[in-house]
C-alpha cells in the first residue's frame, strides 16, 4: 500500500533512474538487513524472556511435563494461526475460522453418531468424521473465497457474514448442545495417540507445518499467494489467476481449521457448538504477533508458529501463576494492538 502510494504520487521515487540513486538505496537495504535480523530474533528472544520470567514466578513452568504440555497446547493454535496466515498473506483474513471450528466439531461428531458411534468399525467412523468435517470446512472456505474473489466483497464483511452462518449452522445441527459419544478410535487418532513418544497433536502440527512451508516456498501456488498479497493488480496483469487462487487460499484456510477442529473434538471427547469461541481472534493475534503482515505478502509458517508459541506460553504462564481469566482477555487485546503497531513500525523502517 505504502509502496503504491509513493509511486503514484511520485514523491519518494523522484530519483528514479538517477545514476547515484543506487547508492542511497543500497544503504537503505543495509539498514533493512539489520532490521530483518532484529525482526527475526525479536520474538524468539521475547519467548525465552517470557519463559524465564514465568519460571522465576513459578517453578512448575520449566518442567519437561509442562513444556510438552505447552508444545501440545501450541500445536492447536499453531494450526489455526497457519490457516489464518494463508489468507492474511493475500491481504485477507478469516473471521469465520472460530465458528468453522465449532461447525466442524459438531458436524464430525454427528457424523460419527450417525455411523453408529462406538459400536461401528473404528476406521469407518473416523473416516466419516474426517469426511464430514472437511466437507463442511470446504463449503465454508468456498463461500468465503467466492464472495471475496468473485463478488469483490471485502474479506471482513464476507467472513463476518460466513461467521454468522457458521454459528447458525453449528448451533442448529447440534441443537445448541454438545454432541456426546465420540468413539475411542477417534480420540486415539487425533488426541491420545503418540508417534515416537510425541503426542499426536504435535506430530500433526509439525507435519502440516512442514508441508505448508513447502507449498508456500516451492510451489507456483505459494509463490502466487505472496505476489497476490504484495500487489494484487500486478498479479492480475501478469496473468496469475488471482480469483481462483484466492478461492483456493480460503479453502485451504478452512481445511486447516477443520483439521484443528477434529483434533480439539478428539480432546474434549464431544462435538462442541462453542468450541471455536475466540479462536478467530486468537489465530489472527498469533499470526500478527508472529510477524505476518496484514498489508499482505509477508509472513510464513515460522511467523505463525512463533506467534502461536508466544501466546500459548503467555496464557500457560498466566494460568499457572493464577492470573485471572478476564485479565488474560485484556492482555490478549493489548498483544493484538502491540502486534500491529510492531508490524507498522517494521513497514515504516523498511
Amino acid at each position: 500500500m505504502s509502496d503504491a502510494n509513493l509511486t503514484a504520487t511520485g514523491k519518494a521515487p523522484g530519483l528514479e533512474g538517477k545514476a547515484g540513486g543506487e547508492r542511497p538505496s543500497a544503504r537503505a537495504s543495509g539498514l533493512s538487513f539489520g532490521n530483518t535480523w532484529l525482526r527475526k530474533l525479536a520474538l524468539p528472544i521475547a519467548l525465552v524472556a517470557l519463559l524465564g520470567g514465568f519460571a522465576l514466578a513459578d517453578d512448575r513452568i520449566l518442567t519437561s511435563y509442562n513444556l510438552l504440555n505447552i508444545a501440545q497446547q501450541a500445536s492447536y493454535l499453531a494450526l489455526f494461526a497457519m490457516a489464518q496466515m494463508v489468507v492474511i498473506l493475500t491481504r485477507g483474513f478469516d473471521l469465520s475460522l472460530g465458528p468453522t471450528v465449532s461447525m466442524v466439531s459438531v458436524g464430525a461428531a454427528l457424523a460419527m453418531m450417525g455411523m453408529g458411534g462406538g459400536e461401528a468399525n473404528g476406521l469407518v467412523v473416523v473416516a466419516a468424521a474426517i469426511l464430514a468435517g472437511f466437507a463442511l470446512a470446504v463449503a465454508c472456505g468456498l463461500f468465503n473465497g467466492v464472495v471475496v474473489a468473485l463478488l469483490g466483497v471485502s474479506p471482513l464483511v464476507a467472513t463476518l457474514g460466513s461467521m454468522n452462518i457458521a454459528i447458525g449452522v453449528a448451533t442448529t445441527i447440534s441443537d445448541g448442545r454438545p454432541v456426546q459419544g465420540v468413539p475411542a478410535t477417534f480420540s486415539q487418532t487425533f488426541y491420545t495417540g503418540s508417534i515416537l513418544g510425541l503426542p499426536i497433536a504435535i506430530v500433526i502440527a509439525i507435519v502440516v507445518g512442514g508441508a505448508l512451508a513447502f507449498v508456500l516456498s516451492r510451489t507456483v501456488f505459494g509463490r502466487s499467494l505472496y505476489i497476490i498479497g504484495t500487489n494484487p493488480q500486478a498479479a492480475a496483469v501478469a496473468g496469475i489467476p488471482v480469483k481462483r487462487l484466492l478461492v483456493l487460499a480460503y479453502i485451504l484456510c478452512s481445511a486447516l481449521a477443520a483439521l484443528g477442529a477434529l483434533m480439539m473434538t478428539a480432546r474434549t471427547g464431544s462435538g462442541e457448538p462453542n468450541l471455536g469461541g475466540t479462536l478467530s481472534l486468537q489465530s489472527i493475534a498469533a499470526a500478527v504477533v508472529g510477524g505476518t503482515s496484514l498489508a499482505g505478502g509477508r509472513g510464513g509458517v515460522a511467523t505463525a508458529v512463533l506467534g502461536a508459541l508466544f501466546i500459548t506460553i503467555l496464557s500457560n504462564g498466566m494460568n499457572l501463576t493464577r492470573i485471572d481469566g478476564y485479565v488474560q482477555m485484556i492482555v490478549l487485546g493489548a498483544i493484538v494492538i502491540l502486534g500491529v503497531v510492531l508490524d507498522r513500525l517494521r513497514l515504516d523502517t523498511r
Binding site: L281, M329, G333, A334, I335, I337, G339, V340
Partner: peptide
C-alpha cells in the same frame, strides 16, 4: 485490528 484488540480488552 486496533478495535479487535480493544474489543477484547
Amino acid at each position: 485490528v486496533v478495535t479487535l484488540g480493544t474489543m477484547s480488552a
